[in-house]
Design a protein around this nucleic acid. Structure first.
Length: 484
DNA sequence: ATGTTC
């Protein structure tokens, strides 16, 4: 197969390999179907980026990409790269600008027939309570710098200490909502200032809060363990570290650019800028990244609590009656030190997941005890007009992809192209006709985020499921969305 | 993704 002048060998129907050539240290591997490759990668430099990432010092096994792959800064979105902690590098481009962008899904006790005609009111209340849009602020009173520094150190626990949620929410958050060794001295004053009024804000772009209904269940046992049932109302939240995380990324791209010569790496793209994990610069970026990650988890935690309150007031019910419980919270833009089997030996590597979700298997010590037998919940939102999926990780993911899977539908049209298509259409009415209530700050964002801008997430999920990397559990259909 | 070109 040849795509965009890149030769790929077929490993099986859902997996393709770019053989090691030139300065590549490892081969590239892309989980995708032939159809999707033809349709989405002909005019996209993302495969070239898979090759570029394979040049990184210390990269292990493969430069990986998931079926939602598309072009990103340096690394493709939908990319996974693991580097040796001894002689490997860490790269901000392998994490992305929105550090710890991620998704959480909460269950409720409500079923569709109980609430169907009150969805517009619910969405209105959610939209009032949760700030959305670029520069959105003011979910909670303006924080002090000391407060923000506490958030950077504590993550979700800060929200819970301030009555935004409970201990159960922490238990069902990846990393318990807090990466250790997050030292605030590595984060610039400017980044902290940008975070002062952004705790508990949704942001813009593809970020959203969605009220959905469980439409299909593929795995009864796993669904039951997660507390899912057919026609159940659930809530999905997709956001990240806002301006604070953006600033951390920008700060360190500049710092690493200044110091790049001293490491003497010969890399095919300046955007792959990186530092050895054991250098001061590498350690500083990593600890700043952890601070931003903790800010993002706290952000999703606060938003979840604001949503919980909006549900309670809209339906006049108690916490007990509502049972607004976190199923799980995953990060899909992050770098983490993990143990993985390489050449038959367990080794410590830095796994960069950029637009890729962790997908740890049954029995993992890193997942909530409740999910020990089913594996880690993998949350895969689609576009706002179609549907989303919940899946679980597998042992095969651990063997093949450093315990990683896809993170969403994957863009197929640029924001500009999507805007062209959508700007003369009444997207709110179109969605309403499909049974989806939308409230959004900007019409521009809606046009950029319509279904035609994305692949069908079902195709993406089916590739990962058929490759055995995840197992599908449930499909969620949107009823109402708030966006930036 | 982003006080959407300090």
């Amino acid at each position: 197969m040849n795509i965009n002048n890149i030769e790929l060998n077929k490993i099986h129907e859902s997996l393709w390999e770019i053989p090691k050539h030139g300065g590549m240290r490892v081969p590239g591997r892309i989980y995708i179907s032939e159809n999707m490759m033809q349709n989405s990668l002909q005019n996209d430099d993302a495969l070239k980026q898979v090759i570029n990432v394979a040049h990184l010092p210390g990269i292990q096994k493969f430069s990986l990409a998931m079926p939602d792959i598309h072009w990103g800064y340096g690394f493709p979105i939908g990319g996974v790269a693991a580097t040796s902690v001894e002689d490997g590098v860490i790269s901000p481009g392998g994490v992305g600008y929105d550090i710890n962008c991620g998704v959480r899904i909460a269950s409720t006790s409500l079923s569709l027939d109980e609430v169907q005609n009150r969805i517009p009111k619910l969405i209105e209340n959610l939209f009032k309570k949760i700030p959305t849009g670029v520069g959105s602020s003011g979910a909670i009173k303006m924080l002090s710098k000391a407060d923000v520094k506490n958030i950077l150190t504590k993550g979700s626990a800060w929200a819970v200490e301030n009555e935004f949620g409970n201990k159960n929410d922490i238990e069902f958050t990846e990393e318990s909502g807090c990466m250790k060794e997050a030292y605030v001295h590595s984060v610039s004053e400017r980044a902290i200032e940008r975070g002062l009024d952004q705790a508990g804000t949704l942001g813009s772009g593809n970020h959203f809060l969605e009220v959905g209904v469980v439409e299909n269940i593929f795995n009864d046992a796993a669904a039951q363990t997660m507390g899912l049932f057919k026609n159940q109302i659930v809530v999905m939240i997709h956001t990240g570290s806002r301006g604070l995380g953006y600033q951390v990324c920008e700060d360190y791209l500049k710092i690493l650019h200044r110091t790049s010569e001293k490491f003497g790496f010969d890399l095919p793209d300046k955007q792959l800028i990186c530092a050895p994990l054991n250098s001061q610069e590498g350690k500083d970026y990593f600890t700043a990244m952890k601070c931003a990650a903790n800010f993002a988890w706290n952000n999703r935690q606060i938003i979840m609590e604001l949503a919980r309150r909006a549900f309670k007031s809209t339906f006049s019910i108690s916490d007990e009656e509502l049972a607004f419980n976190l199923i799980y919270d995953v990060s899909h833009n992050i770098a983490k030190i993990e143990d993985h089997s390489i050449d038959g030996k367990l080794r410590k590597v830095c796994v960069h997941r950029k637009g890729a979700t962790r997908a740890f298997p049954p029995g993992s010590s890193q997942i909530p005890r409740k999910y020990l037998e089913i594996g880690q919940p993998v949350l895969i939102p689609g576009d706002m007009g179609r549907y989303s999926f919940i899946a679980v990780g597998t042992a095969k993911a651990m063997d093949e992809t450093f315990g990683s899977s896809c993170h969403g539908a994957g863009r197929i049209r640029s924001r500009n192209k999507a805007l062209e298509l959508g700007k003369h259409r009444d997207i709110i009415s179109e969605l309403r006709q499909r049974g989806i209530v939308v409230q959004a700050k900007g019409k521009k964002t809606l046009a950029e985020e319509m279904s035609y801008a994305y692949k069908d997430v079902k195709d993406v999920v089916d590739v990962m499921d058929s490759a055995g990397i995840i197992n599908k559990v449930a499909k969620i259909k949107p009823l109402g969305v708030i966006k930036g």
